[in-house]
């Protein structure tokens, strides 16, 4: 998974949890909270959807890594790739 693909995963989740927001102008390097009406329960939604949809766990101490799309991609892409490697067919 590339970092851009990872940002798309996070943006898709945000589209579901903040359905009134226009995400087309979302700046990847700016904190999500500074651009969107998101509260702490919404961030828990992002964590929950990563768990449900993708099997990705984000420990509480790492929530801060989800502050922006860029930081999310930086933090999550290796997790996605590690998970993919673990579940890849034919792994020896």
């Amino acid at each position: 998974m590339t970092k851009d693909e990872c940002k798309k995963v996070v943006t898709d989740i945000i589209a579901d949890i903040a359905p009134d927001e226009d995400l087309s102008t979302l700046k990847p390097d700016v904190r999500l909270r500074d651009q969107l009406q998101l509260d702490s329960m919404d961030f828990l939604d992002i964590v929950m959807e990563l768990r449900k949809r993708h099997g990705i766990e984000v420990p509480e101490a790492d929530y801060i890594q989800l502050a922006s799309l860029d930081s999310s991609a930086e933090y999550l892409t290796p997790k996605f790739n590690a998970l993919a490697a673990k579940t890849a067919p034919g792994r020896g």
Binding site: I17, A18, P19, D20, Q37, M41
Partner: peptide, 8 residues
Amino acid sequence: QTKKEVRV
């Protein structure tokens, strides 16, 4: 209500 209010 907003869509988010309905969802939450």
